[in-house]
């Protein structure tokens, strides 16, 4: 059964190109493992770093297990509060991935909606939407995110802020990523709307909403999927940067960026592992997403089709 499904996937052009590409296979395997780990963080990680009962300050600054003074119960060592690094990384990656996926989803929904409607409707509406997009593109995404964060802080009370931080972050990253989606989906819509199947739908009398989102949207998904994948890596990095700067998720539920920030202050006093392992993990995560995106861009491009 599994063998049969595998053969079926292998038989398609995309499947074939995937299994032919070592980079695609390796990066997606790594990504898959990371995803599994972060979904089942409670099962995979030896400790729950957010449960104060399991954390003991006595264990603080334990180096990795293979170095001098290391303990076999903390493979990658512990941080300044005595939390197991391995567990915090897994829990931290969970936060990073949630923020990454959610903000890309938000950016995609917003950008694709505006892009498709702008491309299809045209006229003044298109001009307004696309100029807003242009303006948005001139603001660096970190700056945008900082701005949103700053505004949010002044509106939300301190006690609420920790709970709201993650949503603010998703909104902040999403709002700085949507112009990409808007541009690509508008351009693709302009191509699709001149095809005869769209004319046929209009002559039949289908509503514009149906034509845009039932007929055109499925036909422009390929390029969107590619920029979504590459955008995901970017979103995760942006999240880490914001957290590193201290405007991201609160320290009580650290993400990868927060972990790197904590570790950074101990880097020169010899406790290198606190910042090193989260950083390496972040690099591997972002790199495998990007490599997968690169492969996807080539494989989904009909011009570069592998025979």
């Amino acid at each position: 059964m599994i063998y049969k499904t595998f053969n079926k996937i292998y038989d398609t052009d995309i499947g074939y190109s995937f299994f032919k590409s070592k980079i695609a296979v390796i990066s997606s395997t790594i990504l898959f493992i990371i995803l599994l780990c972060s979904v089942f963080a409670g099962v995979v990680s030896p400790y729950n770093p957010f449960d104060p009962a399991t954390v003991s300050l006595m264990d603080a600054f334990t180096p990795p297990s293979w170095s001098e003074g290391g303990s076999s119960s903390f493979i990658l060592g512990t941080d300044q509060q005595g939390r197991d690094m391995f567990s915090t990384i897994i829990y931290g990656s969970r936060i990073s991935l949630i923020v990454g996926f959610a903000s890309i989803l938000f950016a995609m929904v917003l950008g694709v909606f505006l892009g498709v409607t702008a491309g299809y409707i045209g006229g003044k509406y298109e001009i307004v939407v696309m100029r807003v997009t242009d303006v948005q593109l001139t603001i660096p995404s970190i700056l945008m995110a900082l701005l949103v964060n700053g505004i949010a802080k002044s509106f939300i009370s301190q006690s609420m802020h920790n709970d709201m931080a993650i949503y603010v972050l998703i909104f902040a990253i999403g709002i700085s990523e949507w112009p990409q989606f808007a541009r690509v989906s508008r351009a693709s819509t302009l191509v699709e709307k001149n095809k005869e199947y769209v004319s046929a739908s209009r002559i039949i009398g289908l509503s514009n909403i149906l034509i845009m989102f039932k007929h055109i949207l499925p036909n422009i998904l390929r390029p969107l999927l590619v920029i979504a994948t590459i955008g995901l890596a970017l979103a995760i990095i942006t999240e880490s940067t914001l957290s590193f700067l201290g405007v991201g998720v609160p320290p009580t539920t650290p993400s990868l960026g927060t972990l790197i920030r904590f570790g950074n202050s101990f880097l020169f006093s010899g406790e290198w592992w606190i910042t090193f392992f989260p950083a390496i993990f972040l690099i591997i995560l972002a790199l495998s997403i990007n490599l997968l995106g690169d492969w996807m861009r080539d494989a989904l491009n009909p011009k570069l089709k592998i025979r």
């Binding site: 095809k195 005869e196 199947y197 046929a200 009398g205």
Partner: peptide, 20 residues
Amino acid sequence: SRGQIQMIFQDPYSSLNPRF
């Protein structure tokens, strides 16, 4: 016209939605 006017197009490769 309530669908009473219909059209057949020139290019059979673009006149059908490839995803349907």
